Simulated scan of single mutants.
Amino acid sequence: MTQVSYLWNPPPVPSLPVRGIAERYPVNRIFCVGRNYHAHAVEMGVPVDKANAQPFYFTKSASTLVESGATVPYPTGTSNYHHEMELVVAIGAPGFRVAEADASSLIYGYAAGLDMTRRDLQLVAREKGRPWDLGKDFELSAVCGEIVPIGKLGVLSSGALTLDVNGQRRQTADLTQLIWSIPELLADLSKFYHLQPGDLIYTGTPEGVGAVKSGDRLVGHIDHVGDIELSIGAAE
């Protein structure tokens, strides 16, 4: 076999800790679901009628991943940096055109996640009909806690989700409020992608998103899954 040489060392594989074992979960791709709670869709000025809508997605580069407990700098290019607390589904088996009834076979586990957003840049892009990349896919914007193997949890359909900023409650919801359930999302997304082990799916945020500033500390929780923490440092 020919040995491959590179001009410089490739970056390490992004990965996350897994509860209860030493091996880490290597991250392949990050998919994010937009507007998957009714109240948040209204909050963003774009109500969703499930009867006449389909899920939609955007992506974040795996290189944007940052582990829970980190301190990240206030990002450049924005003056309206927002938190979005979410349940993350970690894929552990390949799947393409998967039926809803078979969705559980793809799930390795779950995590608590934060989809950090440069809201002002996202809204400018939305108004101009442009991609959301500047608002969503930027360095250190995909925060994720440890992966909790699915075990006896099965396909999660309920459980409280909360986020506090400096001890003040900002977001609170229950997974029962998801517009599209986990099986529906996996069945739909697998129509368009060959899902692979290492793929993460951020399933959407409830209402209560808002701005954070340097010095803020974020603490989130999802029942059955666990916690996530993030501190906002000074601007670079």
Score class of each variant (00 low, 15 high):
Ile107Ser: 04
Arg119Thr: 12
Gln171Trp: 03
Phe138Glu: 11
Cys144His: 06
Phe58Ile: 10
Ala173Lys: 02
Ala173Trp: 02
Ser68Tyr: 07
Lys50Leu: 02
Glu67Ser: 12
Thr162Asn: 03
Ser68His: 08
Ala62Trp: 06
Ala53Phe: 00
Leu163Gln: 01
Ala41Asn: 03
Gly145Val: 14
Asp164Trp: 00
His82Gln: 14
Arg130Tyr: 15
Val148Trp: 07
Val42Asn: 05
His40Thr: 05
Met116Glu: 01
Pro75Val: 10
Ala70Lys: 14
Val155Ala: 03
Leu156Tyr: 01
Val155Cys: 06
Glu84Ala: 08
Gly113Gln: 03
Arg97Asn: 09
Glu86Tyr: 03
Arg118Tyr: 07
Ala70Met: 11
Ala112Pro: 01
Tyr37Met: 00
Gly95Cys: 06
Met44Tyr: 02
Met85Asn: 07
Ala160His: 12
Ser79Phe: 13
Lys152Gln: 14
Ala125Cys: 10
Ser104Glu: 12
Thr78Phe: 09
Val88Phe: 14
Glu146Leu: 15
Val143Trp: 09
Ser141Leu: 10
Ala103Gln: 05
Tyr110Arg: 08
Leu87Gln: 00
Asn80Gly: 04
Asp49Ile: 00
Leu163His: 03
Ile150Arg: 13
Pro55Leu: 10
Tyr81Glu: 09
Val72Thr: 06
Met44Phe: 03
Lys136Arg: 09
Arg35Val: 02
Leu156Phe: 01
Pro94Arg: 11
Gly77Pro: 01
Asp102Ile: 08
Val66Met: 06
Thr59Leu: 12
Phe58Met: 12
Arg130Leu: 15
Thr76Val: 15
Ser141Glu: 09
Leu134Asn: 14
Val42Ser: 04
Asp133Ile: 10
Asp49Val: 00
Tyr110Ala: 11
Asp174Ala: 07
Arg126Val: 01
Arg126Ile: 02
Ala112Arg: 00
Ala41Met: 02
Ala99Leu: 10
His83Thr: 07
Ala112Asn: 05
